[in-house]
Design a protein around this nucleic acid. Structure first.
Length: 562
RNA sequence: UCGGGUAUCGUCUAAUGGUAGGACGCCAGAUUCUGAUUCUGGUUGUCGAGGUUCGAGUCCUUGUACCCGAGCCA
């Protein structure tokens, strides 16, 4: 149905919130939270959740907390906490003074557990993990009660206190909720609330040797923070009745949980576990490898926060599982970078060109606009001389008709400079490889001059050989060959694209670029968008990461005609 | 097989009983000193079968497919 106005449509969570606002369900409050576990780096899938939670808060004049769900000391590290905070900020969001840790609630959670024991709603079990699995039943068969299920309250209290005191080894005792071993929802079959873990916690140190389970923590943490809309992914749908059970038995504030489908992206792995594996097995160079879908990797690759936010906006929010086309992400960066990135010239695979009729030793300074779509971006000077480099791909010895570039006897314009004509081709005597083009230039065709009369079909980028600076360039493409790498039965590495990183050790850049610093973004004319690497660049010798290529119609044509 | 979810262009996503719309992709054309950008136009869809209704993507019945769930992970 087309609306008369161009009012953007709302997704189901916005609809729910607006309904709540209308009925005054939470006194008009909207309070969300982004609750990562600090056991890995944030990726583009988390960006969806961050944009959703912080975005909703902003849209409805509410608040959004950052909370670390750190209930498993054996997997969590401070390094991740720092990285996550940096990534959320980089994405453009601010939790102000609302930084929380579930571990800050450990004392309160312990009290909650005691309350449930006293109500006869929790008990200490001593079934082994294997036994517990057997007692749990299956998807189609009910479970059986543990023989320890009906201990007296006093005994449970005593045992739980002794768990806390460190009297039991890991696995010997757990605290379980007493709910219903026959429930069709397995999450309700007396779930574990506390387990013994002799691990040092990144925040509480060795204060505890028992730790609450996520399921006994998350809902209460939301409750304590007075979250109104607790947004999470689909797989937690089955947990909702359990959270509500805890909250009800504890008689505390109850937020509303809403589940949405997590992001899937083709050619991309979005599982922290598998990303960790890529890092550990050294298939990539760390969490911030520019091929990684992590926010730190994408940042290093040259993606902008605005592009990622725009992407998250465009993919929508729904409950059906779906896979977004990577092309949409690329569209979003290109759109942002097209607006903002200065145009410069660089050659990736140099082919020497000598202009035979250009005076030896002469150098001209040409004026080049920095962004044709944005006059306010200004212009710069680029040197032009008798010897140049152009792109190897821009020459063909026996070109098809539609090839608008250089070939024997053909003419092209050099961007911001002159029209040149290819007169002779020089080849390596042994290999037959084309190593140099001898050309002539037409002095009357200088860009911007009034003499400019002729037009040619093709325009090439170039650099002046004596002025060019060598620079390392890294050309990235998909890490995986398979559209859905998660399907890969074999180990991760079997689906890896061996060409996902091509290192150009010696490309050439125009002089202007040698002072570029880490994080600077440019459009290399006709090649793509590049970002100066933050890690490996040194003063005066920047390393360039290719963020994304330009759309390439010629590549399509060339591919089609074989 | 039990419980919980989900099905709309190639891919996402709108339409809350009243003309199935948008975005990306793709195709064609215009402009272009980037085969970029920009601009025009085009392409294609309601999971199946019944039913209710003047009218169904939407309601009812029924079937099918897919996802999640048996960690002392989150």
């Amino acid at each position: 149905m087309q609306k008369d106005d161009t009012e953007p449509s709302t997704h189901f969570i916005q609809n729910l919130i607006e309904e709540d606002l209308k009925t005054g369900k939470y006194e008009g409050r909207v309070h969300t939270r982004f609750p990562p576990e600090p056991n890995g780096y944030l990726h583009i899938g988390h960006a969806k959740s961050i944009c959703l939670n912080f975005g909703l808060a902003k849209q409805y004049a509410g608040k959004c907390n950052l909370r670390f769900d750190d209930t498993n000391p054996s997997k969590e590290e401070d390094e991740y906490v720092k990285a996550i905070m940096e990534d959320v900020r980089w994405l453009g969001f601010d939790w102000e003074d609302r930084l929380y840790f579930s571990s800050d609630n450990f004392d309160q959670l312990y009290e909650y557990a005691i309350q449930l024991i006293k109500k006869g709603k929790a008990y200490v079990d001593e079934l082994t993990p294997e036994q517990m699995r057997e007692y749990r039943g299956t998807l189609t068969e009910p479970g059986q009660n543990s023989p320890y299920r009906d201990r007296a309250v006093e005994e449970n209290l005593d045992l739980f206190e002794r768990m806390r005191a460190g009297e039991f080894a890991e696995g010997e005792r757990v605290l379980r909720a007493k709910i219903d071993m026959a429930s069709a929802n397995l999450k309700m079959r007396d779930p574990v609330m506390y387990r013994v873990l002799n691990a040092v916690h990144h925040r509480t140190g060795d204060k505890w040797c028992i730790y609450p389970m996520y399921d006994f923590t998350h809902g209460q943490s939301d409750s304590l923070e007075k979250i109104t809309h607790s947004i999470c992914t689909l797989e937690f749908e089955d947990h909702r009745p359990l959270y509500n059970w805890f909250l009800k038995e504890l008689d505390i504030y109850c937020p509303q949980q809403i589940e949405f489908a997590r992001l899937n992206l083709n050619y991309t792995l979005l599982s922290k576990r598998k990303l960790l594996q890529l890092v550990q097995e050294k298939h990539v160079n760390g969490w911030d490898d520019p091929r990684m879908p992590t926010l730190s990797g994408m940042r290093r690759r040259g993606y902008t926060p605005a592009a990622i936010r725009d992407f998250c906006e465009r993919i929508g929010v729904a409950k059906s599982n779906s896979t977004i086309d990577f092309a949409l992400l690329e569209h979003c960066v290109r759109e942002d970078l097209n607006r903002t990135a200065p145009r410069v010239m660089a050659v990736v695979r140099p082919l020497k060109v000598v202009l035979e009729n250009y005076p030896e030793g002469q150098v001209e300074e040409l004026i080049a606009e920095n962004n044709p779509n944005d006059p306010s971006a200004g212009s710069r000077k680029i040197p032009f001389s008798r010897v140049l480099y152009v792109e190897q791909d821009d020459f063909m010895e026996d070109p098809p008709k539609k090839f608008f570039r250089l070939g024997p006897g053909r003419e092209v314009r050099l961007k911001h400079a002159y029209i040149i004509k290819c007169e002779r081709v020089i080849k390596d005597e042994n290999t037959g490889e084309v190593i140099e083009l001898r050309c002539t230039y037409d002095v009357e065709t200088k860009s911007g001059s009034s003499m400019e009369t002729r037009k040619v079909k093709g325009t090439l980028h170039w650099v002046s050989a004596p002025h060019a600076q060598p620079a390392e360039m890294r050309l990235y493409s998909h890490l995986f060959l398979n559209e859905n790498p998660a399907d890969e039965k074999e180990c991760l590495s079997s689906g890896l694209n061996s060409d996902s990183l091509e290192i150009i050790e010696k490309g050439f850049i125009e002089p202007f670029l040698q002072d570029a610093v880490g994080g600077d973004r440019f459009q290399f004319l006709r090649l793509g968008y590049f970002c100066v690497d933050n890690v490996d660049s040194r003063s005066g010798s920047p390393v360039f990461n290719r963020t994304v290529t330009l759309r390439d119609t010629w590549a399509k044509i060339a591919k089609k005609s074989g």
